[in-house]
Simulated assay, not measured.
Amino acid sequence: MIQISDSAAGRIKELLEAEDTPNLFLRLGVRPGGCSGFSYSMGFDDEEHSEDKILTVNGLKVVVEESSAHYLEGVEIDFKEEGLSGGFTIDNPNAIASCGCGSSFKMKDEEGQVENCDH
Protein backbone atom coordinates (compact mmCIF):
# COMPACT_ATOMS: atom_id res chain seq x y z
CA MET A 1 0.00 0.00 0.00
CA ILE A 2 2.56 2.62 1.13
CA GLN A 3 6.29 2.59 0.46
CA ILE A 4 8.89 4.43 2.52
CA SER A 5 12.43 4.66 1.16
CA ASP A 6 15.42 3.73 3.30
CA SER A 7 16.48 7.37 3.55
CA ALA A 8 12.97 8.48 4.63
CA ALA A 9 12.66 5.61 7.13
CA GLY A 10 16.06 6.48 8.59
CA ARG A 11 15.14 10.15 8.98
CA ILE A 12 11.75 9.30 10.52
CA LYS A 13 13.43 6.96 13.01
CA GLU A 14 15.87 9.73 13.97
CA LEU A 15 12.99 12.15 14.53
CA LEU A 16 11.04 9.58 16.56
CA GLU A 17 14.06 8.96 18.80
CA ALA A 18 14.52 12.70 19.33
CA GLU A 19 10.93 12.96 20.59
CA ASP A 20 11.77 10.64 23.51
CA THR A 21 8.09 9.69 23.87
CA PRO A 22 7.16 6.01 24.14
CA ASN A 23 4.71 4.44 21.70
CA LEU A 24 4.98 7.14 19.02
CA PHE A 25 4.26 6.14 15.44
CA LEU A 26 3.93 7.79 12.04
CA ARG A 27 0.40 8.88 11.14
CA LEU A 28 -0.44 9.57 7.50
CA GLY A 29 -3.61 11.10 6.18
CA VAL A 30 -5.28 13.23 3.56
CA ARG A 31 -7.34 16.33 4.25
CA PRO A 32 -9.56 18.42 1.97
CA GLY A 33 -7.86 21.66 1.03
CA GLY A 34 -4.65 22.89 -0.48
CA CYS A 35 -4.14 24.35 -3.91
CA SER A 36 -5.25 21.24 -5.82
CA GLY A 37 -8.06 19.89 -3.64
CA PHE A 38 -6.35 17.65 -1.08
CA SER A 39 -3.30 17.96 1.13
CA TYR A 40 -1.20 15.35 2.90
CA SER A 41 -0.86 15.15 6.64
CA MET A 42 2.16 13.41 8.11
CA GLY A 43 3.17 13.52 11.74
CA PHE A 44 3.72 11.59 14.94
CA ASP A 45 0.96 10.30 17.17
CA ASP A 46 0.63 7.93 20.10
CA GLU A 47 -3.13 7.34 20.01
CA GLU A 48 -4.83 4.80 17.75
CA HIS A 49 -8.51 4.97 16.75
CA SER A 50 -10.91 2.18 15.82
CA GLU A 51 -11.05 3.32 12.17
CA ASP A 52 -7.25 3.28 11.76
CA LYS A 53 -5.36 0.88 9.51
CA ILE A 54 -2.10 -0.21 11.12
CA LEU A 55 0.83 -1.09 8.85
CA THR A 56 4.50 -1.88 9.22
CA VAL A 57 6.51 -0.24 6.45
CA ASN A 58 10.32 -0.42 6.30
CA GLY A 59 10.53 -1.10 10.03
CA LEU A 60 8.14 1.70 11.00
CA LYS A 61 4.68 1.53 12.52
CA VAL A 62 2.47 3.54 10.19
CA VAL A 63 -1.15 4.36 10.96
CA VAL A 64 -3.60 5.55 8.30
CA GLU A 65 -7.19 6.64 8.84
CA GLU A 66 -9.61 4.42 6.93
CA SER A 67 -11.04 7.49 5.16
CA SER A 68 -7.57 8.37 3.77
CA ALA A 69 -6.49 4.86 2.77
CA HIS A 70 -7.67 4.89 -0.86
CA TYR A 71 -5.97 8.26 -1.48
CA LEU A 72 -2.66 6.85 -0.23
CA GLU A 73 -2.69 3.54 -2.12
CA GLY A 74 0.72 3.16 -3.78
CA VAL A 75 2.20 6.34 -2.28
CA GLU A 76 5.99 6.49 -2.07
CA ILE A 77 7.61 8.63 0.63
CA ASP A 78 11.25 9.65 0.25
CA PHE A 79 13.65 11.99 2.01
CA LYS A 80 16.13 14.00 -0.02
CA GLU A 81 18.89 16.27 1.20
CA GLU A 82 19.89 19.06 -1.14
CA GLY A 83 22.67 21.36 -0.02
CA LEU A 84 21.79 22.83 3.35
CA SER A 85 18.16 21.84 3.12
CA GLY A 86 16.17 18.70 2.66
CA GLY A 87 12.74 17.31 3.11
CA PHE A 88 10.24 14.57 2.60
CA THR A 89 8.66 14.03 -0.80
CA ILE A 90 5.44 12.16 -1.51
CA ASP A 91 4.90 10.57 -4.91
CA ASN A 92 1.28 9.60 -5.41
CA PRO A 93 0.54 7.53 -8.55
CA ASN A 94 -3.20 8.26 -8.14
CA ALA A 95 -2.84 12.03 -8.43
CA ILE A 96 -3.60 13.61 -11.80
CA ALA A 97 -2.42 17.07 -10.74
CA SER A 98 -0.34 18.47 -7.94
CA CYS A 99 0.65 21.88 -6.75
CA GLY A 100 4.15 23.19 -7.35
CA CYS A 101 4.67 23.13 -3.58
CA GLY A 102 4.27 19.33 -3.66
CA SER A 103 1.96 19.26 -0.66
CA SER A 104 -1.43 19.17 -2.38
CA PHE A 105 -2.91 17.07 -5.15
CA LYS A 106 -6.03 16.18 -7.13
CA MET A 107 -7.29 12.63 -7.57
CA LYS A 108 -8.46 11.00 -10.82
CA ASP A 109 -11.93 10.31 -9.40
CA GLU A 110 -12.53 13.77 -7.91
CA GLU A 111 -14.37 16.55 -9.76
CA GLY A 112 -13.37 20.19 -9.94
CA GLN A 113 -10.66 22.33 -11.43
CA VAL A 114 -7.04 22.61 -10.38
CA GLU A 115 -6.42 26.00 -8.82
CA ASN A 116 -3.29 28.08 -8.92
CA CYS A 117 -0.88 27.54 -6.07
CA ASP A 118 -0.08 30.55 -3.89
CA HIS A 119 3.10 29.01 -2.38
Rank of each mutant, 00 (worst) to 15 (best):
Q3Y: 02
I4W: 07
S5Q: 09
S7D: 13
A8C: 06
A9E: 04
K13G: 03
E14M: 07
L15T: 05
E17R: 15
E17L: 12
E17T: 11
E19A: 13
E19D: 07
T21W: 02
N23L: 12
L24P: 07
L26V: 15
L26W: 04
R27M: 10
L28H: 07
V30S: 07
P32A: 03
G33L: 00
C35M: 07
G37T: 05
F38Q: 14
S39T: 08
S41W: 00
S41D: 05
S41C: 02
G43S: 11
G43E: 06
F44M: 06
D45G: 03
D46S: 14
D52S: 12
I54H: 09
T56I: 06
N58V: 06
N58G: 01
N58T: 10
L60N: 06
K61Q: 12
K61N: 10
V62Y: 07
V62A: 09
V62K: 13
V63R: 12
V63S: 10
V64Q: 00
S68A: 15
A69F: 09
H70I: 06
L72F: 08
E73G: 00
E73S: 14
V75K: 03
V75F: 00
E76I: 08
I77D: 08
I77P: 11
F79N: 06
E82Y: 09
G83H: 11
G86N: 04
G86H: 04
G87V: 04
F88C: 05
T89W: 08
T89H: 13
I90H: 04
D91N: 15
D91P: 01
P93S: 03
P93Q: 02
I96W: 01
I96C: 06
S98Q: 11
C99L: 05
C99F: 08
G100K: 13
G100V: 12
C101N: 13
S103T: 11
S104Y: 01
F105T: 04
K106M: 15
M107W: 03
M107P: 01
Q113A: 08
Q113M: 01
V114Y: 05
E115A: 13
N116T: 10
H119M: 00
